[in-house]
Every structure is written in structure tokens, then in C-alpha cells.
């Protein structure tokens, strides 16, 4: 009797973990459907990537239960993991494909890097805060990403050894665009910079480096504010 009870408990314990994983899987699919597709994200590689990346493994323990909710989450050091929709939107903007090489300035949780890594060949990501870099590196390695190259350092200099890049995402809040990053962007390449206070991204800056040498920016609005007008 006692041994039967023990066996039942062991079987139960082993079935909890897969049940939990199923729940996260369901939440992830639901997230893509309700938060991305419903809001107009159409780029299939982006949607597939976000169905695959286990976002809950990249947030602090206290935030795991909220990992797939429609909002950014605090990850410490005054930083956030972006709202899933924003990650999807930014990814779609740069139109990643296989064969591309992408640079990210501001690894943060590593989620954006993981999403990109599902699509492109190589992701180079730089994080200036030591603790965040260590945590992201460890999490991404555990998750099995071999095409994400993370270094702790100052993103101002970019990552010259692997330049030029097809796309650059600058999530680290910076009041200016470092000239070296523009140099390391391929002609015709795209740089995306989210702009907004913590916990909200109101707009994205898309920087284009044109063949005639000119640089232009385009302000993209993931959420379009329509002023209320009477009549």
C-alpha cells in the first residue's frame, strides 16, 4: 500500500512539470493570436518566432505568471521586458529573414534577441549593465540558442568586428544615435529605436541609411493616438 502511494506521488510530480509547460505553450499561442495577429502583425516568421520563444524563461521569477500578459514587465535595474506586441511590431518592421545579421544594443532580458535568433542567421547583442548581461547570457544558453552572441559592454561603439549589419535595434534608451552604429548599418539597412517612458513605448524611430549617403528617420506609431474631436 505504502509503495503504491509512493509511486502515485512520483507519477504526479513528474506530470506537473509537463502540465505547466503545456500551460505556457497555450498562453504563448494565445498571446500571438490575441495580442499580435489581432492587432495586425502579419509577418509569418515573426509570428512563428514568437510562438516558439519561451518568454516566461526570460523574466524574473516573480513575474513568470505574468509573462504572457499584454504588458511590459520590470526586470530590475530600471529596465523592462517589452510588451509582446511591441517586440512583434519591432521585429516585423525590420523584416528579418534567414541570412540576415542583426545587432541589438540593450539586451535586457534577451527576449528580443531570442525572437530574432529564431529567424536570422546571427544575432549580436550588447548589454551595458553587468548583471543583466550575465542573467540574459545564462538564460539564452540554457534555452539552447547558439546563434546569439552576447557581450557586456558599451553599445556606443557597436560591434565593429561583425559589421555591417542588415538591421540594428537600439533598445537602450539614448538621447542620440551613436554615429558608429549608423556606420555599421548596411546601406538600405534599417535601424529601429523604441521611444517612451519605462513601461510604455509610444513610438518607434526607423532610421534608414540611403544609398546617396543621406540619413532619414521615420516615426512609426504602434498605437495611433487619434485626438478626440467634437463634431
Amino acid at each position: 500500500m505504502k509503495s503504491e502511494l509512493l509511486i502515485s506521488v512520483v507519477i504526479m510530480l513528474f506530470s506537473i512539470a509537463p502540465a505547466e509547460q503545456d500551460k505556457y505553450h497555450r498562453d504563448r499561442q494565445q498571446m500571438v493570436t490575441a495580442q499580435l495577429e489581432a492587432r495586425g502583425i502579419k509577418h509569418k516568421p515573426t509570428l512563428n518566432a514568437m510562438r516558439s520563444v519561451e518568454r516566461h524563461r526570460l523574466v524574473p521569477k516573480a513575474q513568470v505568471e505574468y509573462a504572457y500578459e499584454d504588458r511590459p514587465l520590470p526586470i530590475g535595474f530600471g529596465q523592462t521586458i517589452s510588451q509582446p506586441y511591441m517586440v512583434g511590431y519591432m521585429t516585423e518592421v525590420i523584416r528579418p529573414t534567414a541570412g540576415m545579421k542583426v545587432l541589438e544594443i540593450g539586451t535586457g532580458s534577451g527576449y528580443q534577441a531570442a525572437v530574432l535568433a529564431e529567424i536570422v542567421d546571427e544575432v549580436y547583442t550588447i548589454e551595458i549593465v553587468e548583471e543583466l548581461a550575465k542573467t540574459a547570457k545564462s538564460s539564452l544558453e540554457e534555452m539552447g540558442y547558439t546563434n546569439i552572441h552576447l557581450k557586456e559592454g558599451d553599445g556606443y561603439f557597436g560591434w565593429e568586428e561583425h559589421a555591417p549589419y542588415d538591421a540594428i535595434i537600439v533598445t537602450a534608451a539614448s538621447a542620440f544615435i551613436p554615429p558608429l552604429l549608423i556606420e555599421q548599418l548596411k546601406e538600405g539597412g534599417k535601424m529601429v529605436i523604441p521611444v517612451g517612458a519605462p513601461f510604455t513605448t509610444q513610438q518607434l524611430m526607423l532610421v534608414e541609411k540611403q544609398k546617396d549617403g543621406k540619413r532619414k528617420t521615420r516615426n512609426l506609431l504602434p498605437v495611433r493616438f487619434v485626438p478626440f474631436t467634437r463634431n
Binding site: 551595458i128 558599451d154 556606443y156 538621447a175 542620440f176 544615435i177 551613436p178 554615429p179 549608423i182 556606420e183 532610421v207 540619413r215 532619414k216 528617420t217
Partner: peptide, 17 residues
């Protein structure tokens, strides 16, 4: 050594901030 200041810097700037 990593603090820099250049509010709204022009994209035409190619020097050192």
C-alpha cells in the same frame, strides 16, 4: 567613462560624442 551627451544629435554627425 560611458556617459555621453548630445541631445537630438544630427544623423549627419560622424565625429566622437
Amino acid at each position: 567613462p560611458v556617459l555621453r551627451y548630445a541631445p537630438g544629435l544630427s544623423l549627419s554627425f560622424t565625429g566622437e560624442v
